[in-house]
Nucleic acid binder design. Structure first.
Lengths: 220, 220
DNA sequence: AGCCGCCTCCCCCGGACGGGGGAGGCCCGC
DNA sequence: GCGGGCCTCCCCCGTCCGGGGGAGGCGGCT
Protein backbone atom coordinates (compact mmCIF):
# COMPACT_ATOMS: atom_id res chain seq x y z
CA UNK A 1 0.00 0.00 0.00
CA UNK A 2 1.17 3.49 -0.81
CA UNK A 3 2.54 6.06 1.59
CA UNK A 4 -0.19 8.60 2.28
CA UNK A 5 0.75 12.23 2.76
CA UNK A 6 -1.07 15.30 4.07
CA UNK A 7 0.26 18.65 2.87
CA UNK A 8 0.10 21.68 5.15
CA UNK A 9 1.27 24.98 3.74
CA UNK A 10 -0.36 28.36 3.41
CA UNK A 11 0.92 28.89 -0.11
CA UNK A 12 -1.17 27.05 -2.70
CA UNK A 13 1.78 27.11 -5.05
CA UNK A 14 3.98 25.20 -2.62
CA UNK A 15 1.21 22.69 -2.04
CA UNK A 16 0.79 22.26 -5.77
CA UNK A 17 4.53 21.80 -6.12
CA UNK A 18 4.76 19.23 -3.38
CA UNK A 19 1.74 17.44 -4.75
CA UNK A 20 3.19 17.34 -8.24
CA UNK A 21 6.52 16.05 -6.97
CA UNK A 22 5.07 13.43 -4.67
CA UNK A 23 2.24 12.19 -6.87
CA UNK A 24 4.71 11.50 -9.64
CA UNK A 25 5.76 8.57 -7.44
CA UNK A 26 3.62 5.44 -7.75
CA UNK A 27 4.12 4.55 -4.09
CA UNK A 28 3.17 7.94 -2.66
CA UNK A 29 -0.31 9.37 -2.47
CA UNK A 30 -1.31 12.86 -1.37
CA UNK A 31 -4.55 12.39 0.52
CA UNK A 32 -5.23 15.95 1.58
CA UNK A 33 -4.13 19.53 1.91
CA UNK A 34 -4.49 22.22 4.53
CA UNK A 35 -3.60 25.88 4.40
CA UNK A 36 -3.02 26.32 8.10
CA UNK A 37 -1.89 24.42 11.15
CA UNK A 38 -5.23 25.00 12.81
CA UNK A 39 -6.92 22.77 10.26
CA UNK A 40 -4.50 19.90 10.69
CA UNK A 41 -5.91 17.96 13.60
CA UNK A 42 -9.33 17.10 12.20
CA UNK A 43 -7.74 16.26 8.88
CA UNK A 44 -5.24 13.95 10.50
CA UNK A 45 -8.00 12.22 12.44
CA UNK A 46 -10.08 11.76 9.35
CA UNK A 47 -7.46 10.94 6.75
CA UNK A 48 -4.91 9.20 8.99
CA UNK A 49 -1.96 9.98 6.73
CA UNK A 50 1.37 8.24 7.18
CA UNK A 51 3.24 11.49 6.82
CA UNK A 52 2.40 15.15 7.30
CA UNK A 53 4.53 17.62 5.34
CA UNK A 54 4.16 20.75 7.40
CA UNK A 55 5.29 24.27 6.67
CA UNK A 56 6.78 26.05 9.67
CA UNK A 57 5.39 29.46 8.86
CA UNK A 58 1.66 29.74 8.63
CA UNK A 59 -0.76 32.51 9.52
CA UNK A 60 -2.95 31.17 12.31
CA UNK A 61 -1.01 28.30 13.81
CA UNK A 62 2.58 27.68 12.87
CA UNK A 63 4.13 24.32 12.14
CA UNK A 64 5.71 23.95 15.56
CA UNK A 65 2.45 24.50 17.38
CA UNK A 66 0.61 22.26 14.95
CA UNK A 67 3.19 19.52 15.43
CA UNK A 68 2.79 19.70 19.20
CA UNK A 69 -0.97 19.70 18.87
CA UNK A 70 -1.05 16.68 16.60
CA UNK A 71 1.31 14.64 18.74
CA UNK A 72 -0.51 15.59 21.90
CA UNK A 73 -4.05 14.92 20.79
CA UNK A 74 -3.88 12.19 18.16
CA UNK A 75 -3.09 8.61 19.07
CA UNK A 76 -0.81 6.73 16.75
CA UNK A 77 0.13 10.03 15.16
CA UNK A 78 1.62 10.36 11.68
CA UNK A 79 5.27 11.07 11.00
CA UNK A 80 5.83 14.77 10.67
CA UNK A 81 8.24 16.38 8.25
CA UNK A 82 8.72 20.07 8.77
CA UNK A 83 9.16 22.01 5.57
CA UNK A 84 11.29 25.12 5.83
CA UNK A 85 12.73 27.70 3.49
CA UNK A 86 15.91 28.38 5.39
CA UNK A 87 18.96 26.51 6.46
CA UNK A 88 20.05 27.44 9.97
CA UNK A 89 16.46 27.76 10.95
CA UNK A 90 15.96 28.42 14.64
CA UNK A 91 12.76 26.49 14.29
CA UNK A 92 14.56 23.32 13.39
CA UNK A 93 15.45 22.37 16.92
CA UNK A 94 12.16 23.75 18.09
CA UNK A 95 10.48 21.39 15.67
CA UNK A 96 12.59 18.45 16.75
CA UNK A 97 11.82 19.15 20.38
CA UNK A 98 8.18 19.35 19.44
CA UNK A 99 8.51 15.86 18.05
CA UNK A 100 8.96 16.27 14.32
CA UNK A 101 10.69 13.36 12.65
CA UNK A 102 12.62 15.35 10.13
CA UNK A 103 12.70 18.42 8.06
CA UNK A 104 13.54 19.43 4.55
CA UNK A 105 14.26 22.55 2.63
CA UNK A 106 11.84 23.91 0.09
CA UNK A 107 14.69 24.40 -2.30
CA UNK A 108 15.62 20.75 -2.14
CA UNK A 109 15.45 18.87 -5.39
CA UNK A 110 12.33 16.78 -6.03
CA UNK A 111 14.23 13.52 -5.70
CA UNK A 112 15.42 14.55 -2.25
CA UNK A 113 11.94 15.49 -1.19
CA UNK A 114 10.58 12.14 -2.28
CA UNK A 115 13.46 10.40 -0.59
CA UNK A 116 12.83 12.21 2.67
CA UNK A 117 9.14 11.36 2.70
CA UNK A 118 9.88 7.69 2.04
CA UNK A 119 12.47 7.52 4.77
CA UNK A 120 10.36 9.04 7.51
CA UNK A 121 7.46 6.87 6.42
CA UNK A 122 9.72 3.87 7.08
CA UNK A 123 10.34 5.15 10.56
CA UNK A 124 13.74 6.67 9.97
CA UNK A 125 14.24 9.91 11.81
CA UNK A 126 15.92 11.78 9.06
CA UNK A 127 17.50 15.15 9.29
CA UNK A 128 18.70 16.51 6.06
CA UNK A 129 22.46 16.08 6.26
CA UNK A 130 23.40 19.34 4.61
CA UNK A 131 21.13 21.34 6.86
CA UNK A 132 22.28 19.62 10.00
CA UNK A 133 25.87 20.16 9.08
CA UNK A 134 25.29 23.84 8.51
CA UNK A 135 23.34 24.16 11.68
CA UNK A 136 26.06 22.48 13.69
CA UNK A 137 28.80 24.49 12.04
CA UNK A 138 26.96 27.73 12.62
CA UNK A 139 26.70 26.98 16.29
CA UNK A 140 30.23 25.69 16.64
CA UNK A 141 29.02 22.38 18.01
CA UNK A 142 30.29 19.05 16.93
CA UNK A 143 27.64 16.70 15.72
CA UNK A 144 24.13 16.00 16.79
CA UNK A 145 24.85 14.19 20.04
CA UNK A 146 22.56 14.82 23.00
CA UNK A 147 25.11 17.02 24.73
CA UNK A 148 25.24 19.39 21.80
CA UNK A 149 21.50 19.51 21.65
CA UNK A 150 21.36 20.21 25.36
CA UNK A 151 23.80 23.04 24.87
CA UNK A 152 21.56 24.48 22.22
CA UNK A 153 18.60 24.32 24.54
CA UNK A 154 20.52 26.12 27.21
CA UNK A 155 21.29 28.83 24.70
CA UNK A 156 17.63 29.05 23.77
CA UNK A 157 15.69 32.21 24.45
CA UNK A 158 13.34 32.30 27.40
CA UNK A 159 9.72 33.12 26.79
CA UNK A 160 10.14 36.73 27.77
CA UNK A 161 13.28 37.10 25.69
CA UNK A 162 11.56 35.68 22.63
CA UNK A 163 8.71 38.09 23.21
CA UNK A 164 11.10 41.01 23.43
CA UNK A 165 12.95 39.87 20.32
CA UNK A 166 9.68 39.64 18.43
CA UNK A 167 8.84 43.22 19.38
CA UNK A 168 12.34 44.25 18.36
CA UNK A 169 11.67 42.75 14.95
CA UNK A 170 8.66 45.00 14.71
CA UNK A 171 10.82 48.04 15.12
CA UNK A 172 9.93 48.99 18.68
CA UNK A 173 12.34 50.87 20.91
CA UNK A 174 13.12 49.72 24.42
CA UNK A 175 10.71 52.27 25.84
CA UNK A 176 7.95 51.12 23.50
CA UNK A 177 8.57 47.50 24.37
CA UNK A 178 8.45 48.40 28.04
CA UNK A 179 5.12 50.14 27.57
CA UNK A 180 3.76 47.23 25.59
CA UNK A 181 4.82 44.66 28.17
CA UNK A 182 3.95 46.93 31.09
CA UNK A 183 7.39 46.65 32.70
CA UNK A 184 10.23 49.08 33.27
CA UNK A 185 12.66 50.05 30.56
CA UNK A 186 15.47 48.63 32.70
CA UNK A 187 13.77 45.27 32.54
CA UNK A 188 13.55 45.47 28.80
CA UNK A 189 17.20 46.40 28.61
CA UNK A 190 18.05 43.30 30.61
CA UNK A 191 16.10 41.11 28.23
CA UNK A 192 17.57 42.80 25.18
CA UNK A 193 21.09 42.29 26.53
CA UNK A 194 20.34 38.63 27.17
CA UNK A 195 19.02 38.26 23.64
CA UNK A 196 22.11 39.88 22.16
CA UNK A 197 24.40 37.59 24.14
CA UNK A 198 22.47 34.47 23.22
CA UNK A 199 22.30 35.35 19.56
CA UNK A 200 25.95 36.32 19.61
CA UNK A 201 25.35 39.75 18.11
CA UNK A 202 26.32 43.30 18.91
CA UNK A 203 23.17 45.37 18.68
CA UNK A 204 19.46 45.17 18.10
CA UNK A 205 19.81 45.66 14.37
CA UNK A 206 21.96 42.55 14.09
CA UNK A 207 19.49 40.74 16.32
CA UNK A 208 16.67 41.59 13.96
CA UNK A 209 18.76 40.47 11.00
CA UNK A 210 19.47 37.18 12.74
CA UNK A 211 15.79 36.80 13.49
CA UNK A 212 14.95 37.16 9.81
CA UNK A 213 17.81 35.02 8.58
CA UNK A 214 16.96 32.26 11.00
CA UNK A 215 13.27 32.27 10.27
CA UNK A 216 12.39 33.44 13.76
CA UNK A 217 10.35 36.00 11.92
CA UNK A 218 9.70 36.20 8.25
CA UNK A 219 8.66 38.79 5.71
CA UNK A 220 5.16 38.82 4.33
CA UNK B 1 -3.05 27.19 -30.60
CA UNK B 2 -2.16 27.12 -26.94
CA UNK B 3 -0.35 29.77 -24.96
CA UNK B 4 3.25 28.64 -24.49
CA UNK B 5 5.03 29.46 -21.24
CA UNK B 6 8.63 29.35 -20.10
CA UNK B 7 9.17 29.05 -16.33
CA UNK B 8 12.18 30.69 -14.72
CA UNK B 9 12.71 30.13 -11.02
CA UNK B 10 15.59 28.81 -8.98
CA UNK B 11 13.36 26.70 -6.77
CA UNK B 12 12.34 23.45 -8.41
CA UNK B 13 9.34 23.32 -6.15
CA UNK B 14 7.98 26.60 -7.42
CA UNK B 15 8.55 25.53 -10.99
CA UNK B 16 6.74 22.30 -10.31
CA UNK B 17 3.90 24.23 -8.72
CA UNK B 18 3.57 26.65 -11.60
CA UNK B 19 3.79 23.82 -14.09
CA UNK B 20 1.09 21.87 -12.29
CA UNK B 21 -1.19 24.88 -12.12
CA UNK B 22 -0.68 25.96 -15.72
CA UNK B 23 -0.68 22.56 -17.41
CA UNK B 24 -4.02 21.82 -15.84
CA UNK B 25 -5.35 24.28 -18.41
CA UNK B 26 -5.99 22.88 -21.88
CA UNK B 27 -5.03 26.14 -23.56
CA UNK B 28 -1.72 26.63 -21.75
CA UNK B 29 1.45 24.70 -22.40
CA UNK B 30 4.67 24.90 -20.41
CA UNK B 31 7.40 24.54 -23.01
CA UNK B 32 10.45 24.86 -20.82
CA UNK B 33 12.03 25.66 -17.49
CA UNK B 34 15.15 27.45 -16.36
CA UNK B 35 16.68 27.76 -12.90
CA UNK B 36 18.38 31.08 -13.49
CA UNK B 37 18.05 34.26 -15.47
CA UNK B 38 21.34 33.60 -17.20
CA UNK B 39 19.82 30.62 -18.98
CA UNK B 40 16.80 32.50 -20.24
CA UNK B 41 17.98 34.09 -23.46
CA UNK B 42 18.99 30.97 -25.38
CA UNK B 43 15.84 29.25 -24.19
CA UNK B 44 13.66 32.12 -25.34
CA UNK B 45 15.38 32.13 -28.73
CA UNK B 46 14.92 28.41 -29.13
CA UNK B 47 11.48 27.90 -27.64
CA UNK B 48 9.93 31.26 -28.52
CA UNK B 49 7.37 31.14 -25.70
CA UNK B 50 4.45 33.53 -25.60
CA UNK B 51 4.98 34.24 -21.93
CA UNK B 52 7.92 34.01 -19.56
CA UNK B 53 7.05 33.60 -15.87
CA UNK B 54 10.14 34.92 -14.18
CA UNK B 55 11.16 34.89 -10.53
CA UNK B 56 12.72 38.13 -9.34
CA UNK B 57 15.26 36.57 -7.04
CA UNK B 58 17.68 34.14 -8.57
CA UNK B 59 21.31 33.33 -7.81
CA UNK B 60 23.29 34.33 -10.89
CA UNK B 61 21.09 36.78 -12.75
CA UNK B 62 17.95 38.17 -11.16
CA UNK B 63 14.61 38.59 -12.87
CA UNK B 64 15.07 42.30 -13.50
CA UNK B 65 18.38 41.84 -15.28
CA UNK B 66 17.03 38.87 -17.18
CA UNK B 67 14.00 40.88 -18.27
CA UNK B 68 16.21 43.66 -19.55
CA UNK B 69 18.45 41.19 -21.32
CA UNK B 70 15.60 39.43 -23.04
CA UNK B 71 13.94 42.62 -24.22
CA UNK B 72 17.24 44.05 -25.39
CA UNK B 73 18.54 41.07 -27.31
CA UNK B 74 15.53 39.17 -28.58
CA UNK B 75 13.38 40.50 -31.36
CA UNK B 76 9.66 40.01 -31.04
CA UNK B 77 10.22 39.19 -27.36
CA UNK B 78 7.75 37.26 -25.23
CA UNK B 79 5.50 38.83 -22.63
CA UNK B 80 7.15 38.75 -19.25
CA UNK B 81 5.39 38.18 -15.97
CA UNK B 82 7.50 38.75 -12.91
CA UNK B 83 6.80 36.36 -10.08
CA UNK B 84 7.39 37.69 -6.60
CA UNK B 85 6.87 36.54 -3.04
CA UNK B 86 6.13 39.90 -1.52
CA UNK B 87 3.59 42.60 -1.87
CA UNK B 88 5.17 46.01 -1.71
CA UNK B 89 8.17 44.65 -3.52
CA UNK B 90 10.68 47.35 -4.38
CA UNK B 91 11.43 45.29 -7.43
CA UNK B 92 7.97 45.71 -8.84
CA UNK B 93 8.52 49.13 -10.31
CA UNK B 94 12.04 48.15 -11.21
CA UNK B 95 10.57 45.27 -13.18
CA UNK B 96 7.99 47.48 -14.85
CA UNK B 97 10.65 49.96 -15.85
CA UNK B 98 12.67 47.06 -17.19
CA UNK B 99 9.72 46.25 -19.42
CA UNK B 100 7.85 43.49 -17.64
CA UNK B 101 4.20 43.26 -18.61
CA UNK B 102 2.89 42.31 -15.22
CA UNK B 103 3.65 40.56 -12.02
CA UNK B 104 1.97 38.16 -9.68
CA UNK B 105 2.41 36.94 -6.17
CA UNK B 106 3.52 33.42 -5.44
CA UNK B 107 0.80 33.13 -2.87
CA UNK B 108 -1.87 33.97 -5.42
CA UNK B 109 -4.47 31.30 -5.95
CA UNK B 110 -4.03 29.01 -8.96
CA UNK B 111 -7.00 30.51 -10.78
CA UNK B 112 -5.47 33.96 -10.47
CA UNK B 113 -2.16 32.74 -11.79
CA UNK B 114 -3.80 31.17 -14.82
CA UNK B 115 -5.84 34.30 -15.37
CA UNK B 116 -2.75 36.50 -15.26
CA UNK B 117 -0.89 34.37 -17.79
CA UNK B 118 -3.84 34.39 -20.17
CA UNK B 119 -4.26 38.15 -19.89
CA UNK B 120 -0.65 39.06 -20.62
CA UNK B 121 -0.63 36.55 -23.46
CA UNK B 122 -3.50 38.50 -24.96
CA UNK B 123 -1.46 41.64 -24.77
CA UNK B 124 -3.01 43.09 -21.65
CA UNK B 125 -0.50 44.76 -19.38
CA UNK B 126 -1.85 43.49 -16.15
CA UNK B 127 -0.77 44.48 -12.72
CA UNK B 128 -2.30 42.43 -10.02
CA UNK B 129 -4.89 44.79 -8.56
CA UNK B 130 -4.37 43.80 -4.95
CA UNK B 131 -0.64 44.26 -5.18
CA UNK B 132 -0.90 47.57 -6.91
CA UNK B 133 -3.37 48.82 -4.41
CA UNK B 134 -1.17 47.82 -1.52
CA UNK B 135 1.83 49.34 -3.17
CA UNK B 136 0.01 52.57 -3.76
CA UNK B 137 -1.47 52.64 -0.28
CA UNK B 138 1.88 51.97 1.33
CA UNK B 139 3.37 54.91 -0.45
CA UNK B 140 0.38 57.17 0.00
CA UNK B 141 -0.08 57.69 -3.69
CA UNK B 142 -3.33 57.62 -5.52
CA UNK B 143 -3.64 55.16 -8.36
CA UNK B 144 -1.26 53.98 -11.00
CA UNK B 145 -1.22 57.04 -13.22
CA UNK B 146 2.11 58.22 -14.62
CA UNK B 147 2.35 61.05 -12.09
CA UNK B 148 2.12 58.61 -9.22
CA UNK B 149 4.74 56.43 -10.78
CA UNK B 150 7.00 59.42 -11.26
CA UNK B 151 6.52 60.29 -7.61
CA UNK B 152 7.58 56.80 -6.68
CA UNK B 153 10.70 57.11 -8.72
CA UNK B 154 11.53 60.38 -7.09
CA UNK B 155 11.19 58.73 -3.70
CA UNK B 156 13.46 55.91 -4.81
CA UNK B 157 16.83 55.41 -3.20
CA UNK B 158 19.90 56.65 -5.01
CA UNK B 159 22.63 54.17 -5.84
CA UNK B 160 24.73 55.14 -2.87
CA UNK B 161 21.75 55.05 -0.53
CA UNK B 162 20.80 51.59 -1.70
CA UNK B 163 24.38 50.48 -1.16
CA UNK B 164 24.37 51.88 2.36
CA UNK B 165 21.02 50.27 3.11
CA UNK B 166 22.32 46.94 1.90
CA UNK B 167 25.29 47.21 4.27
CA UNK B 168 22.90 48.19 7.06
CA UNK B 169 20.99 45.00 6.39
CA UNK B 170 24.21 43.11 6.96
CA UNK B 171 24.53 44.54 10.42
CA UNK B 172 27.29 47.05 9.83
CA UNK B 173 27.64 50.18 11.96
CA UNK B 174 28.10 53.59 10.39
CA UNK B 175 31.84 53.43 11.03
CA UNK B 176 32.07 50.01 9.39
CA UNK B 177 30.08 51.17 6.40
CA UNK B 178 32.35 54.19 6.10
CA UNK B 179 35.42 51.96 6.14
CA UNK B 180 33.87 49.63 3.59
CA UNK B 181 32.96 52.43 1.22
CA UNK B 182 36.13 54.40 1.93
CA UNK B 183 34.30 57.58 2.86
CA UNK B 184 33.88 59.53 6.09
CA UNK B 185 31.43 58.54 8.78
CA UNK B 186 29.67 61.87 8.30
CA UNK B 187 28.97 60.90 4.72
CA UNK B 188 27.52 57.62 5.82
CA UNK B 189 25.35 59.40 8.34
CA UNK B 190 24.01 61.60 5.58
CA UNK B 191 23.11 58.60 3.47
CA UNK B 192 21.57 56.80 6.42
CA UNK B 193 19.45 59.83 7.26
CA UNK B 194 18.29 60.05 3.65
CA UNK B 195 17.39 56.37 3.69
CA UNK B 196 15.41 56.77 6.89
CA UNK B 197 13.47 59.70 5.48
CA UNK B 198 12.73 57.96 2.19
CA UNK B 199 11.64 54.76 3.86
CA UNK B 200 9.61 56.73 6.36
CA UNK B 201 11.18 55.07 9.36
CA UNK B 202 12.80 56.18 12.60
CA UNK B 203 16.01 54.25 12.96
CA UNK B 204 18.26 51.77 11.23
CA UNK B 205 16.54 48.82 12.80
CA UNK B 206 13.24 49.81 11.25
CA UNK B 207 15.04 50.43 7.97
CA UNK B 208 16.38 46.88 8.01
CA UNK B 209 12.93 45.55 8.82
CA UNK B 210 11.47 47.48 5.91
CA UNK B 211 14.21 46.15 3.67
CA UNK B 212 13.27 42.60 4.57
CA UNK B 213 9.55 43.18 4.39
CA UNK B 214 9.79 44.82 1.00
CA UNK B 215 12.02 42.18 -0.48
CA UNK B 216 14.91 44.64 -0.84
CA UNK B 217 16.90 41.93 0.85
CA UNK B 218 15.76 38.45 1.68
CA UNK B 219 16.72 35.75 4.08
CA UNK B 220 18.56 32.66 2.88
C1' DA C 1 14.18 23.32 52.85
C1' DG C 2 17.34 24.61 49.42
C1' DC C 3 18.64 25.57 44.81
C1' DC C 4 18.12 27.54 40.44
C1' DG C 5 16.16 29.77 36.57
C1' DC C 6 13.31 33.49 35.21
C1' DC C 7 11.52 38.02 35.64
C1' DT C 8 11.88 42.28 37.59
C1' DC C 9 14.32 46.64 38.69
C1' DC C 10 18.42 49.68 39.83
C1' DC C 11 23.06 52.39 39.15
C1' DC C 12 26.86 54.34 36.24
C1' DC C 13 28.88 55.30 31.94
C1' DG C 14 30.70 55.74 27.28
C1' DG C 15 29.68 55.48 22.66
C1' DA C 16 26.73 55.18 18.80
C1' DC C 17 22.87 57.07 16.67
C1' DG C 18 19.81 60.41 14.50
C1' DG C 19 18.06 65.41 13.75
C1' DG C 20 19.10 69.89 12.15
C1' DG C 21 21.54 72.69 9.48
C1' DG C 22 25.10 73.97 6.10
C1' DA C 23 28.40 73.65 2.22
C1' DG C 24 31.46 72.51 -1.72
C1' DG C 25 32.44 69.74 -6.04
C1' DC C 26 30.84 66.98 -9.77
C1' DC C 27 28.29 65.60 -13.76
C1' DC C 28 24.35 65.54 -16.51
C1' DG C 29 20.51 67.49 -18.93
C1' DC C 30 17.97 71.44 -20.31
C1' DG D 1 25.55 78.39 -19.05
C1' DC D 2 22.63 77.36 -15.45
C1' DG D 3 20.10 74.43 -12.47
C1' DG D 4 19.57 70.20 -10.07
C1' DG D 5 20.59 65.90 -8.33
C1' DC D 6 24.14 63.28 -6.18
C1' DC D 7 28.06 62.47 -3.30
C1' DT D 8 30.98 64.23 -0.11
C1' DC D 9 32.14 66.35 4.37
C1' DC D 10 31.42 69.41 8.53
C1' DC D 11 29.36 71.14 13.29
C1' DC D 12 26.24 70.86 17.38
C1' DC D 13 23.39 68.39 20.32
C1' DG D 14 20.13 65.42 22.67
C1' DT D 15 18.81 60.75 23.08
C1' DC D 16 18.96 56.01 22.88
C1' DC D 17 21.57 52.07 23.25
C1' DG D 18 24.40 48.57 25.22
C1' DG D 19 28.07 46.93 28.83
C1' DG D 20 29.05 45.99 33.49
C1' DG D 21 27.81 45.52 37.58
C1' DG D 22 24.16 44.17 41.40
C1' DA D 23 19.83 42.64 43.71
C1' DG D 24 15.22 40.99 45.23
C1' DG D 25 11.07 38.00 44.56
C1' DC D 26 8.83 34.08 42.86
C1' DG D 27 7.99 29.51 41.27
C1' DG D 28 9.41 24.92 40.24
C1' DC D 29 12.23 21.03 41.04
C1' DT D 30 14.70 18.07 43.95
Amino acid sequence: MPVTVLLVDDEPLVRAGLRAVLEAQPDIEVVGEAADGAAVIPLVRRLRPDVVAMDVRMPLMDGIEATRAVLRTVDRPPKIVVVTTFENDEYVYEALRAGADGFLLKRARPAEIVHAVRLVAEGESLLFPASVRQLAAARGDGDRDPAARAALERAALTGREAEVLRLMTRGLSNAEIAARLVVGTETVKSHVSAVLVKLGVRDRTQAVITAYESGFVSPG
